[in-house]
Structures are given as C-alpha cells and as structure tokens.
C-alpha cells in the first residue's frame, strides 16, 4: 500500500462507511448478528492497518504543517471510528430485548446520531469546517435526548408502566447512541484541527448557538408521555410557525 496522504484519507473514508453500515445493521432487526460481526472484523482490521500506515507515513515522509496535522488527526479519528463499531455491537445486543416501536425517543436519537456520523465523515472528506461545527453543536441535542430517556425510564419504571428489564436496555441503547454522538463530535473537532490548526476542544463557548438552545427548549417542553415521534421536522415547522407570528 502506498504511504501517502491520499491512501490515509481513503482508508479513513472506507472505515467510516463501515461504521455507518454497522450502526445501520445494529438497528436492522432483519439483519443477522453474524453480518454485523463481519463488519466489526473489517473495522478492527482497518484500525490496525491505519495506525501502522500513519506511523510509517510520519517516520518516512517527515510531514510538516497541514500534512502533519492530518496524520495525527487520522490516528485519533481511527480510534474513534473503531469505538463506534464497538458501540454498534452493544446496541445490537441490547436491541434483542427491546421493542423499538414503544420508544420513539430512540428513533429520534438514532436519526440525529446517524446524521451526525454522516456529516462528520462528509466534513472530513470535503474539509468542511462549517459542517463540522454544526455536528459539534448538535451534540447537545443528543445529550439532552439521552437525559430525557433516562428520566422517562425512571418515571415509567416507578409507575410500573414498562418492564424494568426492557426499559433498562433502552437506557443502555440511549447511552450507546450518546457515545456515538460524542465520537462523531470528536471526529468533527479533529477535522477543524486539520483544516485550521486550531484546537477547539473543551471550549463551552463554541458549542452554543441560539438555534440549538431553541431546539433544546422545545424538546424539554414536549410532554414525555407523548406517544409521538419527536421529529426534527415537526420542531422546525413549529419554529417557523412561532417566528411567523
């Protein structure tokens, strides 16, 4: 395999596509576990190959400036993608004991997180810092969704409206999805580092925007026993309505 920036990039992109596939298979009830494990094997193999390739690239090509930043970021993104694969496996296992239709928040989280993963990889491919920034901002939404799932579980569990075992697995799935969201955020932060050279991690100021705050406020307002899909589209329409008035 050629030791160059291009081959590093290609490998990360392929690994990213496998991670997306893994998440998709995790939620696909018709897919067998063995399919998912096969994807996981491929992800793990990429994990080793990519780290090795980065090491060789840095030793032999002495990259400077942006190339050096890219190589270091690839090592980190490599690790994050591998962990996404692990989370997919965890989700698959937990999902066997859950009837997803009963828990619309999971569906919402799945959509949000799925989009974040896609966008963080797109931002990597196209060096798009705007897209990367929007992924980072969106992490708050996912975090809040996860908190609401736990609240729901505690409330309904007390009232014995749901089976404890199933509810517990649901919180596990929410936790896994939240972790995937964090990993996609990490990848986006690395993309910003590659393109601009700035390290924006652990900076709470950057993560705020008014739009997100608005989104969160609306999510918190919705009644938790609503058997309704918390759909981003609905919220956007709602936003539009309120601003029109």
């Amino acid at each position: 395999m050629e030791i160059s920036i291009d081959s590093l990039k290609q490998n990360i992109v392929k690994m990213g596509m496998l991670a997306e596939k893994a998440i998709q298979l995790a939620f696909d009830k018709s897919a067998k576990s063995s399919q998912l494990y096969e994807i996981e094997d491929q992800i793990n193999s990429f994990h080793r190959v990519n780290d090795d390739l980065c090491l060789k690239y840095m030793a032999l090509k002495h990259p400077m400036g942006p190339d050096l930043r890219f190589a270091i970021a690839c090592v980190k993104i490599n690790g994050d993608l591998e962990r996404i694969g692990d989370q997919a496996i965890n989700i698959k296992r937990a999902l066997t004991m859950v009837q997803e239709a009963k828990f619309p928040q999971i569906h919402t989280m799945k959509e949000e997180v799925g989009r974040m993963v896609k966008e963080c990889l797109d931002s990597f491919i196209h060096r798009d810092t705007k897209m990367a920034t929007s992924v980072i901002h969106n992490d708050r939404v996912v975090n809040d969704l996860q908190r609401s799932v736990i609240k729901m579980f505690l409330k309904k569990g007390q009232k014995e409206e749901i089976e404890l075992e199933e509810g517990f697995q649901v919180t596990k799935i929410a936790k896994c999805l939240e972790r995937i969201g964090d990993l996609a955020t990490n990848i986006s932060e690395d993309v910003i580092f590659i393109v601009s050279g700035s390290d924006i991690r652990h900076n709470p100021e950057i993560k705020k925007t008014s739009q997100i705050d608005e989104k969160l406020r609306l999510i918190q307002q919705l009644p938790s026993d609503q058997n309704q899909k918390i759909d981003m589209e609905n919220i956007t329409k709602f936003l539009k309505k309120t601003t029109e008035n």
Partner: peptide
C-alpha cells in the same frame, strides 16, 4: 512547521 500562515510557506514545507 505546524501551522504556517502563508500558502507559499505551507507549500514549501509540505
């Protein structure tokens, strides 16, 4: 060598 400000510098060091 990590984050040059000019494009020409960047091109040279890479």
């Amino acid at each position: 060598f990590t984050n040059p400000k000019q494009k020409k510098t960047e091109d040279y060091i890479t």
